[in-house]
Amino acid sequence: MSARADAPEPTIVRGVSVVVGADGTAHRVERPAVALCACALSRLAPWCDGTHKALRNERPDTVTDRRRPDAGAPPAPW
């Protein structure tokens, strides 16, 4: 399946002071609302950096699912 269709929007979270990342690292929340990355490709994880939109823009015939463990580190989408 191409990454185009299913790169999900981030989740908006309010009213928390700390977000614990998948690796157990605690990230302090310094905004009234934060956007948590849901496509697993943000370079600012756990925060969204808009990468999900860059992926959707790519032509489906040239995109592989970069979230597979064997896909390696994602190249820059721009």
């Binding site: 908006i12 956007a35 600012l44 950096d49």
Partner: peptide, 14 residues
């Protein structure tokens, strides 16, 4: 703005 506007996009539209 990379981080802030990724939040603001969702807040502003939705």
């Amino acid at each position: 703005h990379v981080e802030a506007d990724a939040v603001h996009e969702q807040v502003a539209i939705h």
